[in-house]
Design a protein around this nucleic acid. Structure first.
Lengths: 189, 189
DNA sequence: TTGAACATGTAAGCTGTTACATGATTTC
DNA sequence: GAAATCATGTAACAGCTTACATGTTCAA
């Protein structure tokens, strides 16, 4: 029966807050959930069409005079129903694919520098991510309490913070271990 | 051009160590890389056939008299070449999908208990995972130094340890925040 | 003898990525 | 005038999951 399409619920969840275009949805999703779930236009537009067909959202053309034409989508009662049903069901387990760990796992086939370079790049990437998360967090802390939703957003931001910190701590630990280890098979016997 | 098939390299990497059957590969992969990359039989057997066709592995029938028939696969020189080439290329960024965070993010639509139940279950799951990782780690520490490969395995185990700990710390933090927050819209005005 | 584990596969079908295609508008 | 951003989509296709199908061997 293949995988269940989670994109549906992301779109419904965002539309539950306010009417949005496909482009807006991408923006919002990148910003708010991008650190743990990415979606692309290639999923958004077709899913939106499917949701409209099923009567879970309605489409209208935005009346703004300026800018290119925008299709604005709104959630329907049926859509809200589908969304809340989904929220009442236990989630599937998380899904992670770390190519860096695979490459490290098989790392004995290439010079150690390959592995250290890899980890260095990983650190740079996630130092950046952590910085962004900390900004979100600071912004959120200022507006917390205004809206119940902020608490839930905050909780997901805390998750990102923990994870990125764990990444960075691990990276340093791994680099230290690699530096301590003498390269094998290079010294004269 | 769609995604690149990483399963190929996992199989080649495992075969680089020793000859294995499809069934063995699944076992090894579950045990050694299962915490950050899962593969199923539905990927393994077809990929094995493809790799054989391309001359990256060879297949022979195991001669053991006991047990069901086993197809044993061995990596070829060409296969080893493909594997090391892959190891020299920088990896793509990691890929994560946390359905639990999505459900929490949209959590204001359902009673808070839904969210706390979710996090409780998450904790149980990862307490279990952490326990397993700690066992691997202890085992590995006993044999470290015997083989260069162990260091790389150890590094991936440390990753799992950090991540699972981060999960659990976050879960407690999130639960605390949810408990502190009074349920909205329930009290009489 | 029943169930768990060993062992190998196929088929269906969604998911998600990447590339392509197009055009308006705003900003520098 | 060029580049970036806004904006909406389609097509191809690989990847991966799930379910199905089948049969053996070993242990309780």
């Amino acid at each position: 029966m293949a995988k269940e399409n989670t994109t549906i619920y992301i779109i419904l969840g965002l539309l539950n807050h306010e009417d949005l275009s496909g482009y807006d949805i991408k923006k919002r999703a990148d910003y708010m959930i991008g650190s743990f779930w990415e979606i692309g236009y290639g999923q958004i537009y077709p899913t939106l069409a499917k949701l409209e067909q099923e009567g879970l959202v309605t489409k209208r053309v935005s009346e703004e005079s300026k800018g290119p034409e925008r299709n604005l989508y709104a959630i329907t009662g049926a859509g809200r129903e589908v969304l809340t049903q989904w929220l009442k069901v236990p989630e599937q387990k998380e899904y992670t694919k770390y190519e860096i760990l695979l490459k490290l796992f098989f790392g004995s086939l290439v010079p150690v520098e390959e592995s250290t370079k890899r980890i260095d790049a990983f650190k740079v990437r996630h130092t950046e991510n952590l910085k962004m998360i900390e900004m979100f967090k600071a912004n959120l802390q200022r507006v917390m309490g205004e809206d119940q939703d902020h608490l839930f957003f905050y909780i997901t931001v805390l998750f990102g913070e923990r994870i990125y910190n764990a990444y960075l701590e691990w990276a340093d630990e791994a680099l230290k271990l690699l530096q301590e280890t003498p390269e094998k098979g290079q010294e004269p016997s």
